[in-house]
Design a protein around this nucleic acid. Structure first.
Lengths: 333, 333
DNA sequence: GTGAAAGCGCTAACAA
DNA sequence: TTGTTAGCGCTTTCAC
């Protein structure tokens, strides 16, 4: 690769000063339209490309942001990264990504690396909605948490509205005429569990459908757990005619149990999931109606928050709650 | 955030020259052990962190690499990114990511952005194994393709061994004693389709099980397609006792058809998938035996290839084929 | 073994 | 409107 064309090369070949070129390129209004035109033309001709590092050094701002996450190996990763990526991109900024094995306590090294690149801010995201401990390495660098909260409460968070999501699920089931509505919840230690349940409960109450605690069972978070829990639910009589599964994997298991029992979805039992893990919800038969976890949106908002914070607009120090859109498919409507 | 500590700060507070500090920090053997010790100690005390941009400017090498992909929104993204990430990380390098809507022709802008950051190389990855057209913007910058090939054949590729994978699937089914083994294949225009089928065919032949073309049906790539295809297969008599589905989504649909027919897995029919989309293969009941698409591995290899190319070791210009490990679960063993 | 000094490519005063 | 001139923080010869 030949040595990249520099600004000086441009200036020299045009017979103008470097600052003239700089101004022309950066749209400062200190050059004549004519000069600007010539500069732009020559730049294109020579294939000039600004050197981001040099620019950063001189301007003291890199246009780089960091994302530290354990999420990289989950299906949510894509949306999160895409959302943040696009938001930064729109402002001409770039994203550096680092993974962590221990999201509860993001790797020091990951953060150090970002600091060495003088990122304008760091986004920390987790797969599960949880509380984490952020290392103190970041000397006051803008930082925002996505899908998690800081144990010390020093940084703003972007969180999904679990309660409203649960409410949506409950309403949907109730408004489809179901009378005995059950819920298969996540383990209580997951932050999402209580919110989803609480929302679900108020929805039933608001809809005038009895909320029966004995119809709310707690299991794990996987398909097998959902299968087992649904089996227990179906053993009751009368059996429920609607089940809200606190995540799509649980719903996947519930489908099996319902089928085993010779019942149909949504005919006998309507099912609503949560998370909208497309690969499950979209491909289950019948396709699963579910509440989506807005990772793309959260990524976008986190990125914007960060840029605002860096710009000194400080931004809301408090939590931003993002609503979880309902995705209506066939298992309940 | 206070102004970061610079090398000059360090040197001044230590009463030595900047170069002494630089040498000490970079493990050059031109400083006394004692000086090095003092420098390191002071650096830690002051929280000195090298400025990556400045270093890049002076040393003409940024330690940054780019990944351009359409894959970011798929479940494979995580593994790919993680694999590349880790490989770069291990060498103290960092990864910049850019998404593309049009993987067939990666965005010029994405590539431009990476060039501005003076990346040492670019990895281009796609969700589906395909042939793409790489824009000419990269003036001889090291570049490697993951899960795709360059239409102009200018860049090395890292590809999964589809044929060996198909062979594995066929052998597995044959060695479990199945005699009428069917295959539900992907649309012929997908690169993966023919490789997987060919491998499957030779496996059957090698195992002495008849390869019956009428048992090889082609559909789409989704669960619904798999369902329909399996239905057709099951309508034949005698029905197959083993089905190799060219991806896990097809297998997901096949499960439904098999169940509808009142047959059991793996009792009546053994099923083997491909891709190892964990969320499907791991949670289907019974769990799906499948051939995994080694994205993490491919990401790692692509990254290493890139670093070698940059180091001038040139590296194999030809394609690197990565084997697809079999993941044995319950649907066939 | 150590220091001085010249850049790397760019921005941003300031002067003309 | 244009050009001159300092740096930004670091690496890397080259003298000492």
């Amino acid at each position: 690769m030949a040595r990249p064309v520099t600004m000086s090369d441009l200036a020299r070949s045009l017979g103008v000063s470097r600052s003239a070129v700089s101004f022309a390129l950066n749209n400062e209004n200190q050059v004549s339209a004519e000069t600007r035109r010539r500069v732009l033309e020559k730049a294109a001709e020579l294939g000039y490309r600004p050197n981001a590092g040099a620019r950063a050094l001189a301007s003291q701002t890199t246009g780089l942001y960091g994302l530290v996450t354990d999420i990289v190996t989950t299906p949510f990763a894509g949306d999160l990264i895409a959302g943040a990526q696009e938001a930064f991109w729109r402002q001409g900024k770039s994203l550096i990504i680092a993974g962590t094995k221990t999201p509860d306590r993001p790797d020091r090294r990951s953060l150090e690396m970002m600091l060495e690149h003088r990122v304008g801010g760091v986004l920390v995201a987790t797969t599960w909605n949880r509380t984490i401990k952020v290392p103190d390495v970041l000397d006051g660098i803008p930082m925002a948490l996505v899908h998690c909260t800081d144990v010390d409460g020093r940084y703003p968070s972007v969180l999904p509205d679990e309660v409203a999501g649960g409410y949506e699920a409950g309403s949907l089931l109730a408004s489809s005429g179901r009378k005995r509505i059950a819920m298969i919840n996540l383990p209580a230690d997951l932050t999402a569990a209580e919110g989803r349940r609480a929302g679900f409960e108020s929805a039933l109450k608001d809809a005038g459908v009895p909320y029966d605690p004995s119809l709310v069972v707690t299991g794990g978070a996987d398909a097998t757990d959902g299968y087992l829990a649904a089996k227990r639910l179906l053993a009751q009589s009368p059996a429920p005619d609607g089940i809200f599964c606190a995540n799509d994997r649980l719903a996947m298991g519930a489908y099996d149990a319902i089928r085993d029992a010779g019942l149909s979805i949504p005919g006998d039992i309507a099912v609503v999931g949560f998370d909208n893990q497309e690969i499950i919800s979209n491909f289950l038969r019948p396709a699963l109606t579910t509440i989506s976890l807005p990772f793309r949106e959260m990524g976008r908002i986190g990125a914007e928050l960060l840029m605002k914070m860096e710009a000194g607009e400080e931004g809301p120090r408090e939590t931003v709650v993002v609503s979880c859109p309902t995705v209506i498919r066939e298992s309940a409507r």
